[in-house]
Amino acid sequence: MPYITAADGAQIHYRDWGTGQPVVFSHGWPLSGNAWDTEMKLVADNGFRAIAHDRRGHGLSEQTWSGNDMDTYAADLAALIETLDLHDVILVGHSTGGGEVVRYAARHGAGRVSKIVTAGAVPPVMVQSESNPEGLPIDVFDGIRAGVLADRSQFYQDLSAAFFGTNREGSTISQGARDEFWRQGMLVGLKAAYDCVKAFSETDFTEDLKALTVPMLVAHGDDDQIVPIADAAEKTVTLVPTATLKVYPGAPHGIAGPYQEAFDADLLAFIRS
Protein backbone atom coordinates (compact mmCIF):
# COMPACT_ATOMS: atom_id res chain seq x y z
CA MET A 1 0.00 0.00 0.00
CA PRO A 2 1.32 3.50 -0.79
CA TYR A 3 2.29 5.74 2.10
CA ILE A 4 4.12 9.02 2.43
CA THR A 5 5.98 10.19 5.50
CA ALA A 6 4.81 13.39 7.17
CA ALA A 7 7.17 15.93 8.72
CA ASP A 8 6.93 14.26 12.15
CA GLY A 9 7.39 10.76 10.69
CA ALA A 10 3.70 9.82 10.63
CA GLN A 11 2.73 7.42 7.88
CA ILE A 12 -0.06 8.78 5.70
CA HIS A 13 -1.90 6.36 3.42
CA TYR A 14 -3.13 7.45 0.00
CA ARG A 15 -4.59 6.10 -3.23
CA ASP A 16 -3.54 7.26 -6.68
CA TRP A 17 -5.71 6.51 -9.73
CA GLY A 18 -5.33 7.53 -13.35
CA THR A 19 -3.09 9.99 -15.14
CA GLY A 20 -3.28 13.66 -16.08
CA GLN A 21 -3.77 16.86 -14.11
CA PRO A 22 -3.93 15.93 -10.41
CA VAL A 23 -7.16 16.25 -8.46
CA VAL A 24 -6.46 15.81 -4.74
CA PHE A 25 -9.38 14.94 -2.47
CA SER A 26 -9.64 15.59 1.29
CA HIS A 27 -12.36 13.82 3.26
CA GLY A 28 -14.65 14.82 6.09
CA TRP A 29 -14.86 13.65 9.70
CA PRO A 30 -15.03 10.80 10.70
CA LEU A 31 -14.41 9.26 7.29
CA SER A 32 -11.44 8.30 5.11
CA GLY A 33 -10.32 8.76 1.54
CA ASN A 34 -12.78 6.03 0.58
CA ALA A 35 -15.55 8.59 0.97
CA TRP A 36 -14.41 9.99 -2.40
CA ASP A 37 -14.39 6.70 -4.34
CA THR A 38 -17.15 7.66 -6.77
CA GLU A 39 -15.63 11.06 -7.52
CA MET A 40 -12.14 9.60 -7.86
CA LYS A 41 -13.32 7.13 -10.47
CA LEU A 42 -15.27 9.87 -12.23
CA VAL A 43 -12.31 12.19 -12.65
CA ALA A 44 -9.86 9.38 -13.44
CA ASP A 45 -12.23 8.11 -16.13
CA ASN A 46 -12.21 11.61 -17.61
CA GLY A 47 -8.48 12.10 -17.98
CA PHE A 48 -7.42 13.34 -14.55
CA ARG A 49 -5.19 11.84 -11.89
CA ALA A 50 -7.23 11.25 -8.73
CA ILE A 51 -5.46 11.14 -5.36
CA ALA A 52 -7.03 10.78 -1.92
CA HIS A 53 -5.28 10.34 1.41
CA ASP A 54 -6.54 9.18 4.78
CA ARG A 55 -6.05 11.97 7.32
CA ARG A 56 -3.72 10.99 10.15
CA GLY A 57 -5.60 8.87 12.65
CA HIS A 58 -8.21 7.99 10.00
CA GLY A 59 -8.57 5.06 7.64
CA LEU A 60 -5.27 3.27 7.06
CA SER A 61 -3.03 6.16 8.16
CA GLU A 62 -1.01 6.03 11.34
CA GLN A 63 -2.89 6.74 14.57
CA THR A 64 -0.65 9.39 16.06
CA TRP A 65 -1.20 10.74 19.55
CA SER A 66 -0.39 14.30 18.53
CA GLY A 67 -0.93 16.37 15.41
CA ASN A 68 -4.71 16.10 15.25
CA ASP A 69 -5.10 19.79 14.42
CA MET A 70 -5.69 21.78 11.27
CA ASP A 71 -2.17 23.13 10.92
CA THR A 72 -0.76 19.60 10.96
CA TYR A 73 -3.47 18.27 8.64
CA ALA A 74 -2.52 20.97 6.12
CA ALA A 75 1.17 20.17 6.57
CA ASP A 76 0.43 16.48 5.95
CA LEU A 77 -1.36 17.42 2.74
CA ALA A 78 1.66 19.49 1.77
CA ALA A 79 3.91 16.50 2.39
CA LEU A 80 1.72 14.36 0.14
CA ILE A 81 1.70 16.90 -2.69
CA GLU A 82 5.42 17.61 -2.42
CA THR A 83 6.42 13.95 -2.15
CA LEU A 84 4.42 13.14 -5.28
CA ASP A 85 5.76 16.35 -6.90
CA LEU A 86 2.31 17.49 -7.96
CA HIS A 87 1.72 20.75 -9.82
CA ASP A 88 -1.31 22.52 -11.28
CA VAL A 89 -3.30 20.78 -8.52
CA ILE A 90 -7.07 20.91 -8.19
CA LEU A 91 -8.04 20.56 -4.53
CA VAL A 92 -11.39 19.10 -3.49
CA GLY A 93 -12.45 19.03 0.15
CA HIS A 94 -15.62 17.99 1.95
CA SER A 95 -16.55 19.25 5.41
CA THR A 96 -13.37 19.07 7.54
CA GLY A 97 -11.49 18.38 4.32
CA GLY A 98 -12.74 21.70 3.00
CA GLY A 99 -10.97 23.42 5.85
CA GLU A 100 -7.88 21.34 5.24
CA VAL A 101 -7.57 22.29 1.56
CA VAL A 102 -8.23 25.97 2.29
CA ARG A 103 -5.48 26.10 4.92
CA TYR A 104 -3.11 24.14 2.70
CA ALA A 105 -3.74 26.42 -0.29
CA ALA A 106 -3.25 29.58 1.78
CA ARG A 107 -0.14 28.48 3.65
CA HIS A 108 1.61 25.89 1.46
CA GLY A 109 0.08 25.87 -2.00
CA ALA A 110 1.53 28.93 -3.72
CA GLY A 111 2.50 27.98 -7.27
CA ARG A 112 1.00 24.50 -7.00
CA VAL A 113 -2.77 25.02 -6.76
CA SER A 114 -4.87 25.91 -9.81
CA LYS A 115 -8.44 25.48 -8.50
CA ILE A 116 -10.30 24.65 -5.30
CA VAL A 117 -13.63 22.90 -4.75
CA THR A 118 -15.31 22.64 -1.36
CA ALA A 119 -18.54 20.87 -0.45
CA GLY A 120 -20.32 21.31 2.87
CA ALA A 121 -17.07 22.80 4.12
CA VAL A 122 -16.48 24.13 7.64
CA PRO A 123 -14.85 27.53 6.84
CA PRO A 124 -14.85 30.30 7.87
CA VAL A 125 -15.46 29.02 11.47
CA MET A 126 -18.19 26.88 12.96
CA VAL A 127 -18.25 27.61 16.69
CA GLN A 128 -20.24 30.49 18.14
CA SER A 129 -18.32 33.39 19.65
CA GLU A 130 -18.63 37.15 20.12
CA SER A 131 -17.16 37.64 16.66
CA ASN A 132 -19.24 34.79 15.17
CA PRO A 133 -22.65 35.00 16.86
CA GLU A 134 -24.31 32.96 14.08
CA GLY A 135 -22.12 29.94 14.84
CA LEU A 136 -23.13 26.78 16.64
CA PRO A 137 -22.81 26.81 20.45
CA ILE A 138 -19.82 25.01 21.94
CA ASP A 139 -22.31 22.68 23.65
CA VAL A 140 -23.01 21.11 20.24
CA PHE A 141 -19.38 20.11 19.85
CA ASP A 142 -19.06 19.06 23.47
CA GLY A 143 -21.98 16.73 22.76
CA ILE A 144 -20.15 15.23 19.79
CA ARG A 145 -17.07 14.61 21.92
CA ALA A 146 -19.18 13.03 24.65
CA GLY A 147 -20.85 10.74 22.11
CA VAL A 148 -17.50 9.66 20.68
CA LEU A 149 -16.17 8.82 24.13
CA ALA A 150 -19.27 7.10 25.47
CA ASP A 151 -20.22 4.79 22.59
CA ARG A 152 -18.81 5.89 19.28
CA SER A 153 -20.25 2.93 17.38
CA GLN A 154 -23.83 3.87 18.27
CA PHE A 155 -23.03 7.56 17.99
CA TYR A 156 -21.88 7.17 14.37
CA GLN A 157 -24.96 5.13 13.54
CA ASP A 158 -27.19 7.85 14.96
CA LEU A 159 -25.19 10.68 13.38
CA SER A 160 -25.53 9.16 9.93
CA ALA A 161 -29.23 10.13 9.89
CA ALA A 162 -28.54 13.87 10.11
CA PHE A 163 -25.41 13.50 7.95
CA PHE A 164 -27.39 12.09 5.02
CA GLY A 165 -30.73 13.69 5.85
CA THR A 166 -32.54 10.37 6.26
CA ASN A 167 -34.50 12.06 9.06
CA ARG A 168 -36.21 14.17 6.38
CA GLU A 169 -39.38 13.06 4.66
CA GLY A 170 -38.74 11.72 1.18
CA SER A 171 -35.08 10.82 1.69
CA THR A 172 -33.87 8.16 -0.75
CA ILE A 173 -30.50 7.50 0.91
CA SER A 174 -29.97 3.79 1.54
CA GLN A 175 -29.17 1.98 4.74
CA GLY A 176 -26.05 0.81 2.95
CA ALA A 177 -24.78 4.39 2.67
CA ARG A 178 -25.35 4.85 6.40
CA ASP A 179 -23.58 1.57 7.13
CA GLU A 180 -20.58 2.71 5.08
CA PHE A 181 -20.45 5.94 7.09
CA TRP A 182 -20.35 3.83 10.25
CA ARG A 183 -17.70 1.50 8.82
CA GLN A 184 -15.35 4.33 7.90
CA GLY A 185 -15.99 6.05 11.22
CA MET A 186 -15.03 2.96 13.19
CA LEU A 187 -11.59 2.97 11.53
CA VAL A 188 -10.75 6.32 13.13
CA GLY A 189 -8.62 6.15 16.25
CA LEU A 190 -10.40 7.41 19.36
CA LYS A 191 -7.85 10.16 20.03
CA ALA A 192 -8.02 11.42 16.45
CA ALA A 193 -11.82 11.31 16.39
CA TYR A 194 -11.99 13.27 19.65
CA ASP A 195 -9.32 15.85 18.80
CA CYS A 196 -10.59 16.46 15.29
CA VAL A 197 -13.84 17.88 16.67
CA LYS A 198 -11.91 20.89 17.99
CA ALA A 199 -9.99 21.14 14.72
CA PHE A 200 -13.07 21.33 12.52
CA SER A 201 -15.21 23.43 14.84
CA GLU A 202 -12.87 26.00 16.38
CA THR A 203 -10.31 26.68 13.64
CA ASP A 204 -10.81 30.11 12.11
CA PHE A 205 -10.12 30.06 8.36
CA THR A 206 -11.04 33.70 7.70
CA GLU A 207 -7.52 34.86 6.85
CA ASP A 208 -6.87 31.71 4.81
CA LEU A 209 -9.92 32.41 2.70
CA LYS A 210 -8.88 36.02 2.15
CA ALA A 211 -5.51 34.80 0.85
CA LEU A 212 -7.02 32.63 -1.92
CA THR A 213 -6.69 33.90 -5.49
CA VAL A 214 -7.47 30.85 -7.65
CA PRO A 215 -10.94 29.93 -8.98
CA MET A 216 -13.06 28.29 -6.30
CA LEU A 217 -16.35 26.39 -6.41
CA VAL A 218 -18.19 26.46 -3.08
CA ALA A 219 -20.88 23.75 -3.06
CA HIS A 220 -23.37 23.38 -0.22
CA GLY A 221 -26.74 21.80 0.43
CA ASP A 222 -29.30 24.21 1.86
CA ASP A 223 -30.59 21.50 4.23
CA ASP A 224 -27.16 20.68 5.64
CA GLN A 225 -27.82 19.76 9.28
CA ILE A 226 -24.13 19.36 10.16
CA VAL A 227 -22.57 22.52 8.69
CA PRO A 228 -25.36 25.09 8.24
CA ILE A 229 -24.97 26.93 4.95
CA ALA A 230 -25.60 30.41 6.38
CA ASP A 231 -22.56 30.20 8.66
CA ALA A 232 -20.30 28.51 6.13
CA ALA A 233 -20.60 28.71 2.35
CA GLU A 234 -22.57 31.95 2.31
CA LYS A 235 -19.85 33.63 4.36
CA THR A 236 -17.00 32.00 2.46
CA VAL A 237 -18.00 33.50 -0.86
CA THR A 238 -17.95 37.00 0.64
CA LEU A 239 -14.29 36.48 1.60
CA VAL A 240 -13.02 34.93 -1.65
CA PRO A 241 -13.53 37.16 -4.72
CA THR A 242 -12.78 34.25 -7.06
CA ALA A 243 -15.40 31.97 -5.47
CA THR A 244 -18.71 30.87 -6.98
CA LEU A 245 -21.46 29.55 -4.70
CA LYS A 246 -23.52 26.57 -5.87
CA VAL A 247 -26.50 25.78 -3.64
CA TYR A 248 -28.22 22.38 -3.84
CA PRO A 249 -31.86 22.71 -2.75
CA GLY A 250 -32.85 20.22 -0.06
CA ALA A 251 -29.42 18.57 -0.08
CA PRO A 252 -27.89 17.25 3.16
CA HIS A 253 -24.30 17.27 4.37
CA GLY A 254 -23.31 13.85 3.06
CA ILE A 255 -22.62 13.61 -0.67
CA ALA A 256 -24.99 10.86 -1.74
CA GLY A 257 -28.10 10.22 -3.82
CA PRO A 258 -29.46 13.05 -6.01
CA TYR A 259 -27.07 15.52 -4.37
CA GLN A 260 -24.09 13.41 -5.41
CA GLU A 261 -25.33 13.15 -8.99
CA ALA A 262 -25.70 16.93 -9.27
CA PHE A 263 -22.46 17.70 -7.45
CA ASP A 264 -20.45 15.26 -9.54
CA ALA A 265 -21.68 16.86 -12.75
CA ASP A 266 -20.73 20.31 -11.45
CA LEU A 267 -17.36 19.05 -10.18
CA LEU A 268 -16.45 17.61 -13.57
CA ALA A 269 -17.58 20.73 -15.42
CA PHE A 270 -15.55 22.96 -13.07
CA ILE A 271 -12.31 21.02 -13.25
CA ARG A 272 -12.60 20.87 -17.04
CA SER A 273 -13.20 24.61 -17.36
Rank of each mutant, 00 (worst) to 15 (best):
G185F: 02
T38F: 14
D264T: 10
D222M: 11
A243W: 09
I226C: 04
A50D: 14
A230L: 06
P258H: 04
M70R: 11
A79R: 15
Q260F: 04
D266Q: 05
D85C: 05
L31Q: 13
T83W: 02
L149H: 11
G18H: 05
D266I: 05
L187C: 10
E261K: 13
D231Y: 11
G147V: 01
S26L: 04
T5S: 11
Q184H: 08
V102K: 02
A230G: 08
I12T: 12
T5K: 13
M126Q: 13
M1I: 09
G20W: 07
N167A: 12
R168L: 05
I4C: 09
H13P: 10
Q157G: 07
R145H: 09
S95T: 01
Q225G: 11
Q21R: 07
G47W: 08
Q63L: 14
W29S: 13
A150R: 08
V214F: 01
Y156M: 03
G257I: 00
I12H: 04
M1P: 08
D142P: 01
I51A: 12
L91C: 08
K246W: 01
A232L: 01
S171D: 14
Y104D: 08
Q128N: 08
T213K: 01
P22C: 05
A150H: 05
V125F: 03
A192W: 15
T72K: 14
L77I: 06
D45H: 08
W29H: 13
D16R: 00
G165S: 07
T236L: 06
W29V: 09
V218T: 06
A52C: 13
V102D: 00
L190Y: 02
Q11H: 14
R15D: 13
I116V: 09
G109C: 05
M40S: 14
T72R: 15
M126L: 14
L84C: 14
T236N: 06
N132T: 07
N68L: 10
D8V: 00
M186C: 12
I116D: 00
L60C: 10
F263T: 04
A232W: 00
L77P: 08
P258L: 02
M186K: 06
Y104I: 05
S61H: 04
S32M: 06
G120A: 04
C196L: 13
D16M: 02
L86M: 07
T213P: 02
W65C: 15
F181M: 12
G67F: 15
L212Y: 04
A74H: 11
G97C: 09
T166Q: 09
Y3K: 06
P133N: 03
D179K: 02
D222W: 07
N68T: 12
